[in-house]
């Protein structure tokens, strides 16, 4: 079990109210895989430093979780398959 930090940039055309529930649906993979979601921080809409998929804005969210490596990788894969997700970054904060 490892501590992961996941940052997601979501499509700015999404309603900001729907972000938390839809993100939570993705995180079910972690819960089913025996992990635990510790914290979900939705930064909200933010200007991108450069355009991604012709979008100048994005909805940022940061998730802290404990999970097995396979589970974390699977979550990252599923997020990348979704069209509402512009970009993800999966990191292990403690790893150096």
């Amino acid at each position: 079990m490892r501590h992961y930090e996941l940052m997601v940039i979501l499509d700015p055309d999404l309603e900001e109210r729907t972000v938390a529930p839809s993100l939570d649906k993705f995180l079910n993979v972690v819960r089913k895989g025996g992990g635990a979601v510790e914290n979900v921080d939705i930064w909200g809409r933010r200007r991108l430093a450069y355009e991604i998929n012709k979008k100048a804005e994005g909805i940022y969210a940061v998730v802290d979780m404990m999970a097995e490596p396979d589970v974390a990788k699977e979550l990252d894969r599923q997020l990348n398959l979704n069209e509402a997700v512009l970009r993800t970054k999966l990191m292990r904060p403690g790893a150096r």
């Binding site: 450069y50 994005g58 970009r87 970054k89």
Partner: peptide, 11 residues
């Protein structure tokens, strides 16, 4: 470099 990847800083 990580921040650039996530469009927090410009390239």
């Amino acid at each position: 470099k990580n921040a650039r990847e996530m469009a927090l800083l410009p390239y």
